[in-house]
Simulated assay, not measured.
Amino acid sequence: MKNYKYDNLIVASSPHLVDSITTSKIMAMVIIALMPAFAVSIWVFGARAIFLTGICIIACVVFEYLFNKITKKPSTIGDFSAVVTGILVAFNVPVNFPYWMAIIGCFVAIIIAKQLFGGIGQNFVNPAITARVVLFLAFSTEMTSWPTPQRIFLATDAVTGATPLALFAKQNFDQLPSNTEMFLGTIGGCIGETSALALLIGGLFLLFKKIISPTIPVSFLGTMVVISLIAGIDPIFQICAGGAMIGAFFMATDYSTSPLTTNGKIIFGIGCGLITMVIRLFGNYPEGVSFSILFMNLIVPHIDNLSRRKLYGGGVKND
């Protein structure tokens, strides 16, 4: 009788799918999609945008490597997820933000929000969003000292000014930039959120490559537009200002922290847009994107349970 060897067989639960797409390829696509916004940040704010983004990338990769080393887990720095997190952390802070504070944000994103919950795919909140919220609560002055576009190089001091959302909240409407300026990104703000055009290009690239679905971005931004029209304010201003575009395309669509079903994604996007606009219109803080995504991340399990497809069939109990 012939002996068969099963050493090469891999036993795993269904579904048994083989796909050429990998985590590293997905993250590489996200990095490419973020490059237009990165290029605009260099053009608007100067070389310091490069240094701050580079430091955040290095810090995130080092934190992930050290955590895996200390806990004796396989290294995951090759999947590029830490690189994406580093870019997004940098994109969510002002260009004159102190380096050491940015490193703290990277620690929060990688160690606390990601690795302590099991690593990529196990985290229940978006790491970059968590870092931004923590940095805002811990260093509110530095997080709201927005530099004006003037090609900042290595200096940490810069002429600061109010962002469009801050001007809107204070009802300084005569000082608001035009929608064209906001669309192109020649305004003050965080490194990666100023240019709606660059973020839209990146988002459309991800949609074209089918890395993300349009459900969350459309429902997120669409809800903001509807509420803006109801409130009698300019919807173009609202979706171009602040972190709406980067949040809708790059952070709300995170696989680990967004719903699985299409209906769930719609609920998630509407919730993000609704909370964002409520904070912008009635809150003390002019921006609500980070808080809205973080809050909706927390209730994703409940959204999945509510939107899960019900199975047909089943027996009927007879008396």
Results as ranks from 00 to 15, higher is better:
Ala241Phe: 03
Arg309Asp: 12
Phe173Gln: 07
Ser290Arg: 10
Lys72Glu: 14
Asp79His: 04
Val218Leu: 15
Leu66His: 10
Ala128Ile: 01
Val93Cys: 05
Ile103Trp: 10
Leu154Pro: 06
Ile112Met: 12
Ile110Pro: 04
Gln171Phe: 07
Ile111Ala: 07
Phe250Thr: 04
Ile230Phe: 15
Glu142Trp: 11
Leu281Phe: 14
Ile270Trp: 01
Trp146Asn: 03
Leu204Gly: 08
Thr76Asn: 11
Pro259Asn: 08
Phe51Pro: 01
Thr23Glu: 13
Val133Ala: 14
Gly119Phe: 06
Val300His: 05
Ala155Glu: 13
Phe183Arg: 03
Leu137Glu: 13
Asn3Val: 13
Phe136Leu: 15
Leu66Glu: 10
Gly264Trp: 00
Pro301Thr: 06
Cys240Thr: 11
Ala155Tyr: 08
Val62Thr: 11
Lys210Phe: 07
Lys209Val: 00
Met251Ile: 01
Ile26Glu: 09
Ser24His: 12
Met245Leu: 09
Trp146Tyr: 13
Gly242Tyr: 01
Ser75Ala: 13
Val289Met: 12
Val61Thr: 07
Ile266Met: 09
Gln122Thr: 10
Cys106Glu: 06
Ser213Arg: 10
Thr53Trp: 02
Leu306Gln: 09
Leu167Ala: 02
Lys25Tyr: 11
Pro98His: 04
Phe80Leu: 15
Pro164Ala: 10
Ala109Glu: 05
Phe282Met: 12
Thr223Arg: 00
Phe136Trp: 15
Leu260Lys: 14
Leu135His: 00
Met251Leu: 11
Tyr4Trp: 13
Phe173Ile: 08
Val300Cys: 06
Pro36Asn: 06
Phe268Gly: 00
Ile187Ser: 02
Val40Phe: 05
Lys2Asn: 12
Gly78His: 08
Pro301Val: 07
Thr130Phe: 09
Lys317Gly: 11
Asp19His: 13
Asp234Trp: 05
Leu17Tyr: 14
Val225Lys: 02
Phe117Cys: 10
Trp43His: 12
Thr23Ser: 14
Ala113Thr: 06
Thr194Glu: 00
Phe107Cys: 09
Phe220Glu: 02
Ala28Leu: 14
Ala131Phe: 06
Gly202Leu: 06
Ala198Gln: 02
Thr76Lys: 08
Leu197Gly: 05
Ile211Leu: 07
Ile103Val: 15
Ala244Gly: 09
Val278Ala: 07
Phe205Gly: 00
Ile216Lys: 02
Thr276Gly: 08
Ala241Gly: 05
Glu181Ala: 14
Trp146Asp: 00
Ala82Arg: 02
Gly283Glu: 01
Val93His: 01
Val40Lys: 00
Phe91Val: 04
Pro147Ala: 05
Leu135Gly: 03
Thr194Asn: 03
Ala231Tyr: 11
Gln238Gly: 03
Leu17Lys: 13
Tyr99Asp: 05
Asn126Cys: 09
Leu154Cys: 12
Met35Lys: 04
Ala82Glu: 01
Ile212His: 00
Thr262Gly: 13
Ile129Ala: 08
Thr148Ser: 13
